[in-house]
Amino acid sequence: MSDDPVKARETSTGSIRTPRQRLRAWITPALRPWRLMLALKTAIAATAAWFLGGFIPGELGEFSYYAPLGALVSLTPTLMDSVRSSFQTLIGLGLGIGLAWALIVSPAPGWVSVALSVGLGTILAGLPGLGQGRDYVPIAALFVIIIGGANANEFSLGYLVQMALGVLVGLLVNLLIMPPLFVRESAAGITAARARMVDALRTMSTTLSSETEPAPDDPPPWEGSVTSLRHDIDAARGLVRDAAESRRANPRTRWNKHDFRGDQGALEALERIAPAVVELGDALRAALWGIPVPVRLGTEVRGTLADALDAAANLVDAAIDDERLPEALETSDRTLVALRRAVRSAHVDAVNRAGPDGGSASGSADDPADDPGGENLLFALRRIYAEVESSKRTDQAE
């Protein structure tokens, strides 16, 4: 048991998080600026819908308490999602009300109508394309039968009209009050994934350059970064998707000059580079730990490989339009040439040691898993270089 009164938890990346840090990480997503703005707009829309709902003449105005609910369901982070969910909700309400009326005019007793409204409503909710509106099919049917009762006609019309009013108010508020653009979040997600990739490559280079051999029981120092890299790229992909959705029909795109296409290109490049980084980690794990298969990596190759890994890290760290990119490409190319020569030299030495009969002192010359020169490592590094260079050419062509 630790003597420290504050118990900390170790994450998959090896960092220690205190209870306060875990609590902050749990609360922070709910306090992001765009969510606080969404909460403010929802409050404004619900209040305005309730106020306006009371001005509808006749008995329809008596159901104004449903207008705030319509505003609530129509407010989502992006405009297009708001439009989509609003229409889906109204369609779901229409289906539920129609089902309720079918049961009302049927000879079924009240308790049977309640059961059928929920059961058949749940079945209808499974229709494709209803989206968020599927939840309101059984709810609307149940409300009309139970709450509407003898006044089902007025209730059904008032329920639908007030919900539609709230939806309209919510859409207008979402359109007029700072419709969100998630381009900053998108760029931040890509930056985080890029930083994770750079950290993995530099850790590999540092491990190779170290004069101390890693202990056989220790996990590779880069394992946490490589494992988290997959999660970071998935998260960045989701953020880019959200940013693309937030731009649709958004008037703020007219004066927002963020290079969203550049974000998409950067993410696609990282997605193509990530498998090469994972392959590098697996190959180095095999070379240093013999897992999952033993791979020989001569000392004559390690130095140039460490330089190539460090150059690859600098290359990935350079943005598509970064002024450092040409120099990073040149340095990476130079280290790859040196590594290619070292790999060829290692293979020549291995062949010479094997002798004319193809045998070797270790008896592993014919083992297909035996890689005395690190060809797979060279291929993965060349793949990273090619992807970055290709991204640069594409950016210049545009």
Rank of each mutant, 00 (worst) to 15 (best):
P180T: 07
G170C: 11
R340Q: 08
S113L: 05
D333Q: 08
V301K: 05
S156H: 12
L160Y: 14
A152W: 08
L168E: 00
Y65G: 04
R340T: 12
G14M: 01
P77T: 05
Q21G: 02
T212P: 09
A235H: 13
F55W: 11
L72P: 05
G133D: 07
N376D: 11
I320Q: 10
V295C: 10
A346L: 04
V183S: 07
T47I: 12
L38R: 12
L60V: 13
L60I: 14
S209W: 02
M178Y: 13
V337D: 07
A380H: 04
T122R: 07
P57F: 03
R9K: 06
R261K: 07
R296H: 07
G98Q: 02
Q132R: 10
D259G: 08
Y159E: 01
D333Y: 06
P68R: 06
R17M: 00
G92K: 12
T42W: 01
E154F: 13
A45F: 05
L142A: 15
G358D: 12
L31D: 02
V114W: 00
E375H: 06
A125N: 11
L329Q: 13
I146D: 01
P221T: 04
A200D: 11
S390Y: 05
S82D: 02
G110I: 02
L270S: 10
T42G: 15
G121F: 08
L339P: 09
A328P: 14
T207V: 12
V337I: 14
P128Y: 03
L69F: 05
F155P: 10
N352L: 11
W34N: 09
S360W: 00
R84N: 10
G355Y: 02
L239Y: 06
L38C: 07
P292W: 03
A266Q: 15
A266G: 13
A25C: 07
T394C: 02
I123R: 00
I320N: 08
S186D: 05
Q21A: 02
E185N: 15
A311C: 08
L72W: 03
L157Q: 11
Y136Q: 15
G53R: 04
Y385C: 02
L124A: 07
K41V: 01
Y159K: 07
A187N: 10
G129I: 08
T42H: 03
V118K: 06
W289L: 12
P368Q: 09
L239Q: 14
P294Y: 12
A283H: 09
L381G: 11
M178N: 14
S391R: 03
V301M: 07
L377F: 03
Q21H: 00
E154A: 15
R302M: 02
P372I: 00
A243K: 03
E300R: 14
R241K: 07
P107Q: 05
L377S: 13
G149F: 00
G166S: 11
Y385L: 09
F182E: 04
E268L: 09
V198M: 07
G189K: 06
A25N: 10
A43G: 13
L172S: 08
I145T: 14
I291L: 14
A365K: 12
A243H: 08
G70T: 09
S2A: 09
A286C: 08
Q88E: 15
A318L: 04
T13W: 02
A328N: 15
A8E: 01
V348M: 14
A150Q: 14
D259Y: 06
D81H: 13
Y159H: 02
A286I: 05
